[in-house]
């Protein structure tokens, strides 16, 4: 079985943002949201030891994904190949997964009213095509592959020292690794540490999921009744079967 992961080579990344725009284009991600990102930090340090660091990030497809646990409908789930995906049909747009995500990798599409996030371009990958961000990366800084295969480039880069963005407080088994020999990754970790997952409480479950669902159920029943009534009205009673 494959387990997909990505390595971001910070030594190569020049923060051109091509990955971000390619992703937007492939998935019609509405401005200002994003499924992957490059956050540019201003050059900092004490002269002459200055660092200009950018943080290229995306969903970490965590092994112990808080978003999966937080999702009340089972819309967010982890596939056997490690990819965390959102089943849009099941998503009710409650946003609990967004609060649970330590990496800020999710958003609610304001038009579709569904949660969206990186799915490692799994449709492309299944057709043997690299993810869009990897394909367009002009610095070849994004390397995608199967970490169950010890000979894959990602496995080799992880063996050579690529690190995930985890902290002593938060480690949910992320599968995005950062390769860095300029001491830039600690700057990213300091500026963008993984957030402690904000998991759903009973109170939140009630306000964000159960209460709306309750009304929906009532509304749905009402609509069902209405539909049945209209059908009766137009088609006559005999067409309705128990």
């Amino acid at each position: 079985m494959s387990k997909y992961a990505m390595v971001i080579d910070m030594d190569r990344c020049i923060a051109c943002h091509a990955c971000e725009v390619a992703c937007r284009s492939h998935y019609d991600v509405p401005v200002p949201y994003y499924r992957n990102w490059v956050h540019d930090l201003r050059p900092e340090g004490v002269y002459p030891d200055i660092k200009k660091v950018s943080y290229a990030g995306l969903c970490n497809h965590c092994d112990d994904a808080p978003c999966v646990k937080a999702c009340p409908t089972g819309a967010t789930y982890k596939r056997k190949d490690g990819v965390v995906v959102v089943d849009k049909d099941l998503c009710i747009g409650c946003g609990l997964c967004i609060e649970a995500c330590p990496y800020g990798a999710r958003y609610i599409d304001p038009v579709k009213e569904k949660v969206d996030k990186c799915d490692f371009c799994i449709d492309r990958v299944e057709q043997g095509v690299e993810p869009a961000c990897v394909a367009t990366c002009i610095a070849s800084a994004r390397i995608f592959g199967d970490i169950d295969d010890p000979n894959s480039k990602v496995s080799q880069l992880i063996a050579s020292g690529a690190q995930p963005n985890v902290s002593s407080k938060v480690n949910v088994g992320p599968n995005i690794y950062y390769l860095d020999s300029h001491n830039h990754f600690p700057v990213v970790q300091a500026a963008f540490p993984p957030k402690i997952p904000n998991m759903p409480t009973p109170q939140k479950m009630w306000t964000k999921v159960l209460r709306p669902l309750f009304w929906l159920a009532i509304g749905g029943s009402f609509l069902g009744q209405l539909a049945a009534f209209s059908t009766q009205l137009f088609k006559g009673e005999s067409d309705i079967k128990e």
Partner: peptide, 21 residues
């Protein structure tokens, strides 16, 4: 959601965002 909850029928349209799909 009414479609799924209220009538119990699965009527989900495919809303895959992937262009390939």
């Amino acid at each position: 959601i009414s479609g799924t909850v209220g009538t119990g029928a699965a009527v989900g349209l495919s809303t895959s965002t992937s262009k390939a799909k």
